[in-house]
Design a protein around this nucleic acid. Structure first.
Lengths: 164, 164
DNA sequence: TATTGTTATACTCTATAACTATA
DNA sequence: TATAGTTATAGAGTATAACAATA
């Protein structure tokens, strides 16, 4: 099952294209977020998730799950947002170990100030090059990849190179 | 031309899928590089580009161009690699302002030690979920996006949100 | 015991601006 | 003047491990 065979030219091309596009897209987005709202990528991620949450409230752990950061990383980012008054952190009522994060009106304002430009950048860098069919194909393909990644990170299927 | 209209659900789905897959992939790859060769992502990028270069030698500026880093960032990364004896930096002969970077045998060893595991991780996380048609479609779509991104970053077409 | 979250620490990385040297 | 590269600096982000409190 473990095949150390090199990747084919086609596979490499797909891999590199993905990495490069994602990298350029990330840079573009982060610059816009900084310019328009003084937000870092992670900070924007937190606000966006709070905005997208049905109740508008999420636990720290919920945030850490979706985003790819460590727990202490989330604590740091949330601390920055709280300092700026963009979120509040209050102890959970049912489970007193947990912390409930909510967006403040000020936070909502910053998000609103940033979203239009964000849309523009994503459109300009990514979506502008794509037909509706492309968008659908991308979502289909990458959606499957994501689901498999999230599903069971089959650690057992993650062979490390054995040198010598 | 400037439309601040929100992204459609389909567009958002594609964008999020791309960001999430790229993020998870990056984390997986960086962990493997660290485990198998003590390399960071940028350091691996430099070695890989030297390996891929026909002559095996690249100027600092050539490295900075492909990778997304600032010049000082490349200087830093190259400094780290030089400390470990994985590359050499020698003044250019034709143009004495430039620095020629080359991979040492030790650098080649580290790269060789890392590549098999790297292939495995990419296969496991990304390619394992994809058919040949998927790979081709991904390359086609993202290749177009990349070309447009690289082509002429039409700054003029990069509208910043005007908060009234 | 396991889980939630914070803190302390230490390190890596990155960018900016000032600087040197060559073209 | 413009280009190639370095350095100094300073800040932001990240992870790890130890910790406290609740379940």
């Amino acid at each position: 099952m473990t095949e150390h065979a090199p990747l084919s030219a086609e596979e490499l091309a797909a891999y590199f294209a993905l990495r490069e596009v994602a990298s350029l897209l990330e840079h573009g987005v982060e610059q816009q977020l900084r310019d328009d709202g003084g937000l870092t990528g992670p900070a924007f991620g937190i606000l966006a998730r709070l905005f997208g949450s049905p109740t508008g409230r999420l636990r720290m752990t919920d945030l850490a799950d979706g985003l790819v950061y460590s727990r202490s990383g989330i604590t740091y980012q949330a601390g920055q947002l709280e300092k700026r008054g963009l979120i509040t952190r209050t102890p959970g009522e049912d489970d007193e170990r947990s912390i409930i994060v909510e967006m403040t009106p000020a936070g909502r304002e910053v998000l609103d100030a940033v979203l239009p430009g964000h849309n523009d950048v994503v459109r300009e860098l990514l979506l502008g090059s794509l037909s509706k069919r492309d968008v659908a194909a991308l979502t289909d393909i990458l959606g499957r990849v994501r689901d498999r990644m999230r599903a069971g990170p089959p650690r057992s299927a993650a062979p490390r190179a054995k040198r010598n």
